[in-house]
Design a protein around this nucleic acid. Structure first.
Lengths: 207, 207
DNA sequence: GTCAAATGTTTCCAGTGGAAACATAATGGT
DNA sequence: ACCATTATGTTTCCACTGGAAACATTTGAC
């Protein structure tokens, strides 16, 4: 009984999983007030901990953001992987599915997205982040590579095609989550529908 | 002689054009330290003025950023207009030219760009900003409209095509200026070359 | 010239990120 | 079972920030 106290009863001094708690609280606050207004002290306060406690887990505010960004890239990769799984034999379908997944991820986790890209997070200083971002990119490259190999995609430059595919879904996601489409006369389409429509245009061309 | 003092000799008390001076200083600082680290006090200091002086021209730090964003959209519109001028009779060429101009603008003025989109600038609170942003979008819409009318663009949904064109150049610009391409194995192409390559793919399709 | 409006300054406040020194809890070797 | 080491949190401090309020100076319209 007595020995369980620290684990069960409030864990007075040692939180138990403060690192994750801080990240989650930060995400909640980002979704409420935006990254710009995020305050370490506020996050700590809401986690029931002194503001300097976070320095045991993150060397700075930026490094907390980097951890969130890394987590975001990991989840993005997972989402893209899951989306392409059913289309292992059809690179074109896989490419579109991963693009749709990209957009849907961004719309579902705008806080992650804003941290992933808003921050001028010197990737050099955060190797984990750099690797996670590279991994997501590698997924796309692999699909394009496959499409070119099997002849279902045309064009010569693998990297250019990858960049085009990445750009169009990235741009669409940014425009949606940035609220840029609200003020325009955009049709009331879901993110998925917009993503499908736009990627279809890239596939088929518009000229 | 005496009366010219205030205009010629340092203008001790009244700066003369503090509003623009603050904006320019802010842009310089943003390019050095990023939007996130921008400090009003620092901007004021470098402009040789007390930090509260800016409140005579901007009601808050955010409103200074909104002014910069608005200026950015104005310049973006101007750049796009200039780029499309030579192609008044060829909507397809005009569309690509405006896309390339978009990317080149972003690469040339990354500080403006970061403010224009990074900020969750509630457009509702800044009507001038909202209008400037709408105007840039209207330029693209007009070109697409023209292309559909003359039959040089195909597809049914004008807004979807516009969104695709916007997304791909916006995304590419964000990826370039965000340094996202650095860590990948991207070819050492100029922004203009990347923009040309990517927009060409959208025009011709990749399937 | 005078006087109101525009523009800039001084002073103040609460809040912020981070460093340093201290306090407490968990753990592993004896 | 003990105790020293190591992880984890706290307290206190600092320089800095955005902004409000009250005050000072300049300018321009009449």
């Amino acid at each position: 009984m007595r020995t369980m106290k620290s684990k069960q009863v409030r864990a007075a001094y040692h939180h138990g999983d403060l690192k994750n708690a801080l990240m989650e609280t930060a995400l909640v606050q980002i979704s409420r007030t935006g990254v710009r207004a995020l305050s370490l002290r506020d996050v700590a306060r809401r986690s029931g901990v002194s503001h300097t406690a976070s320095y045991r887990h993150f060397s700075s505010k930026e490094s907390l953001l980097a951890a969130i960004a890394e987590q975001g890239f990991r989840r993005l990769s997972a989402a893209m992987r899951a989306a392409t799984l059913p289309h292992a034999d059809d690179p074109v379908a896989a490419l579109q599915a991963s693009g749709v997944a990209y957009v849907e991820f961004g719309v579902s986790y705008p806080e992650h997205l804003s941290v992933m890209f808003s921050v001028q997070l010197a990737h050099a200083h955060y190797p984990g982040l750099a690797q996670a971002s590279k991994e997501a990119y590698a997924l796309l490259t692999a699909i394009v590579h496959d499409g070119l190999r099997t002849g279902s995609l045309r064009g010569t430059e693998e990297r250019t095609i990858t960049l085009a595919a990445w750009s169009i879904v990235h741009g669409l996601t940014q425009l949606i989550t940035g609220g840029q489409l609200q003020t325009k006369d955009m049709p009331s389409m879901s993110a998925r529908e917009l993503a499908l429509a736009v990627t279809t245009l890239l596939h088929q061309g518009i000229v």
